[in-house]
Amino acid sequence: MIRGVRGATTVQKDEEKEIIEATESLLRKMIKENKIEADMVASVFISVTEDITAAFPAKAMRLISGWTFVPVMCMREIPVKSSLDKCIRVMMHVNTAIAQHEITHIYLEEAIRLRPDLQAGDSTQ
């Protein structure tokens, strides 16, 4: 079964170093919390808001040992007027036997506001 594992984070500045570091931190936490190995992953989509232009956040995946061959694609979010600024979102498509309600979705920095109902310790998860 393929399950979607979601994550999001934000950056303060549209600078390559910050974009890559924030994305790497998010990816590593998604991987750790869900016990994901690279060969379990069908693909990864990474989207950014239109105010992020300094780097492809997908470069962060190449910094993680063993993830060289995982297909990853960057794209731009729909520019909704009230959307969160400088936001990076990840959708990882993972082959897993765990139930959908057991997936740990990761929201960091200001992105916590996107899905407060999915934060760790929330019994409605």
Rank of each mutant, 00 (worst) to 15 (best):
S47M: 06
V94T: 02
I78W: 11
E77Q: 13
E21P: 00
I78E: 13
E16R: 12
S65T: 09
S43L: 10
D14A: 08
V72C: 14
T23K: 08
I46L: 12
I31K: 12
E110S: 12
E77F: 04
I20V: 13
C74H: 02
V72F: 01
S25D: 10
D85M: 04
A58F: 05
T10S: 09
I64V: 10
M73P: 00
R76V: 14
H101L: 01
M73Q: 11
E33G: 00
V80E: 11
I78Q: 07
V90G: 00
M75F: 14
D39L: 06
M40E: 15
L84F: 03
E102D: 15
I98C: 02
V48Q: 03
E77T: 08
R76A: 10
N34V: 03
A54Q: 04
N34T: 04
F45E: 07
S47D: 12
K13S: 13
T49Y: 07
M73G: 06
D85N: 11
K59P: 00
L27F: 14
S82A: 13
T96G: 13
E77D: 14
L27D: 11
I36S: 07
P79G: 03
T68K: 15
T96K: 05
T104Y: 02
I36Y: 09
E50R: 12
A55D: 02
T10Y: 01
V11G: 10
V44W: 07
I103D: 02
T49Q: 05
S25G: 00
S82T: 14
I64N: 14
K29C: 03
T9Q: 03
I112C: 03
M40P: 05
L27G: 08
V70E: 04
T96H: 02
V11D: 08
R28T: 08
E37W: 04
T68I: 05
E15G: 03
Q100M: 02
T53F: 03
E21Y: 01
F45S: 03
G66L: 10
I98G: 00
L26W: 11
D14M: 06
I31C: 07
K17P: 00
M30C: 09
E18A: 10
I103A: 02
W67K: 12
H101N: 15
D14W: 00
S47F: 10
L26M: 11
E18F: 04
A54N: 10
A55F: 06
D85E: 13
M30F: 03
W67L: 06
V41C: 05
G66N: 12
A22M: 06
K81N: 02
I98M: 14
F69N: 15
P79I: 08
S43N: 11
P71H: 06
T10I: 01
S25T: 15
V44Y: 06
P79E: 09
I46F: 11
E102A: 14
F56E: 10
K29V: 14
E37A: 13
D39C: 02
Q100C: 01
D85S: 12
K17D: 11
E18R: 03
C74V: 14
V90Q: 01
E110M: 08
E18I: 01
S25P: 01
M73L: 08
E33H: 02
L63V: 00
E50S: 10
E50K: 10
G66Q: 11
H105F: 07
S43E: 15
E18S: 06
K35C: 04
A54K: 13
